[in-house]
């Protein structure tokens, strides 16, 4: 089990191989279907984004509301394949890693290789376990999208498996 502290450097990314189990600590941003659609509208229109893509890790997730006195509600990954058409452009803009669940397209695989980035699979359905790894959470953009907004999460020892690495390795292959 490899412990990873974000931000993820290119050198760290190169060490990772599909199938490796990791525990991730640091800052990640959530974004799913609607947030991606809006990020792309901003990019296409040249509107400044309310979040930094360079060096960021995007987690395909939409959390449950947090109960009073807790940092986050349940927050497992959603199906990554729905973000296949968005991921390559964001990786080219400097995204250091993606976290989601399930297979992604060949185009995403190529973008991971050319940018030396990584796709981590979190364990789908483990919402409570991931909610527990989140130490703080705040909505930083698109609050009107409710759970589909962009949340900045501080995570500690967040379990994941390297699904697609920057050498072309793919756990689903």
């Amino acid at each position: 089990m490899t412990e990873l502290t974000l931000p993820l450097t290119k050198q760290q990314a190169e060490q990772l191989r599909a199938g490796d189990s990791v525990l991730i600590s640091g800052t990640i941003l959530t974004a799913r279907d609607c947030a991606h659609k809006r990020i792309f509208e901003y990019l296409d229109k040249g509107i400044p984004l309310p979040l930094e893509i360079e060096g960021a890790v995007i987690y395909y997730a939409g959390p449950c509301p947090a109960k009073p006195g807790t940092a986050s509600g349940s927050c497992g990954p959603t199906t990554s394949a729905r973000m296949d058409s968005f991921a390559p452009r964001l990786l080219d803009l400097g995204l250091s890693a993606i976290i989601g669940k399930g297979e992604m397209s060949k185009e995403v695989g190529k973008a991971l290789i050319r940018n030396r980035s990584v796709y981590f699979a979190a364990i789908g359905g483990a919402g409570a376990l991931y909610g527990n790894c989140i130490k703080s959470s705040s909505c930083i953009a698109f609050e009107d999208l409710l759970s589909e907004g962009v949340y900045r999460l501080e995570v500690k020892r967040f379990p994941a498996v390297v699904a697609m690495d920057c050498h072309g390795g793919n756990i689903y292959g």
């Binding site: 449950c64 109960k67 349940s74 497992g76 364990i123 483990a126 409570a128 376990l129 909610g131 498996v161």
Partner: peptide, 29 residues
């Protein structure tokens, strides 16, 4: 042994945490 068994173990742990803390077992309710 392997990633699938690791994931199954985490899912069993997840259901325990959910019941204990009265948290949704999956965020997709």
């Amino acid at each position: 042994e392997g990633a699938a068994k690791f994931a199954l173990g985490e899912l069993i742990e997840n259901s325990r945490i959910a019941a204990e803390k009265t948290m949704p077992v999956c965020q997709d309710t």
